[in-house]
Nucleic acid binder design. Structure first.
Lengths: 129, 129
DNA sequence: GGTTGCCTTGACGTGAGCGTCAAGGTTTAG
DNA sequence: CTAAACCTTGACGCTCACGTCAAGGCAACC
């Protein structure tokens, strides 16, 4: 299949697929006229990337999973590097929730008592998912 | 005081202060040679902005608080618009924590059972603080 | 008069993950 | 023959809160 069909079947755009290729996450055969040609294995890769992004992993973080699938494993997260990414992400999520809990309490306190002026110390931690 | 001293006393940079001015958050008197001149009231404003940013509010969201202080209130969050920002942010935080909880459970499950292939549906919600 | 250390405006860079043209080639339908 | 619907590469745009030059003016000290 060509890039348009792959995009449609994966529910994404051709631009995203070309971007993945530029990042070395996706490779493609080329037909004689220069068109990219994909198969079901590539569709699987794209779906893996999307799933991981949906969990909040960066594209960079999906790299080990893709490599794992390419290496022939049936599941992208059965390789040590992938599992390490999971563990790191889990730690990030925990830290993020802790920080959000603090923020939440601060907001509640501010909403409850109007004239207080307690402010939490700035933390450098960046919380996103 | 001039911009350098204000930056030092607020623990930020001159660039940040000029940026706040460009966003209409901070105003400054000008001396005859064109230098910006600030007073303690401005320092208070900057500190308010920093506190709110530390909680995860965007610069845009700090606008009502600054306006509230400018209007003469002793606390930036005693005005309706400010409190509305608090409420909205609280809702965002709650949604974010809920989402993180889902992600967390997913990660734990994946780490526990290697060969499963359940993936949560992609959510469009953007979670950051 | 030269150096240092402030200050000014303006403009481009940063990161992530693409979106959105632009300008053109290829294949198929009518 | 032409239009539609694909495809190609390249390059700039977007968000956010500034960082980082660049080029120059102002003030004080030796």
């Amino acid at each position: 299949m060509r890039i348009g069909e792959l995009a449609k079947r994966a529910g994404t755009t051709t631009r995203a697929l070309r971007f993945y290729e530029s990042q070395g996450l996706l490779e493609a055969q080329r037909t004689s006229n220069g068109y990219r040609e994909y198969d079901d294995h590539d569709l699987r890769l794209v779906r893996e990337i999307q799933s991981l992004q949906a969990v909040g992993l960066s594209l960079e973080d999906t790299r080990p999973f893709v490599a794992c699938l390419r290496a022939g494993h049936e599941s992208g997260d059965s390789c040590p590097d992938s599992r390490e990414v999971y563990r790191r992400k889990l730690a990030e999520v925990d830290a993020c929730m802790e920080r959000l809990q603090t923020v939440r309490e601060f907001l509640l306190a501010r909403l409850a008592f109007q004239d207080r002026c307690l402010v939490p110390e700035p933390k450098e931690f960046q919380c996103s998912s």
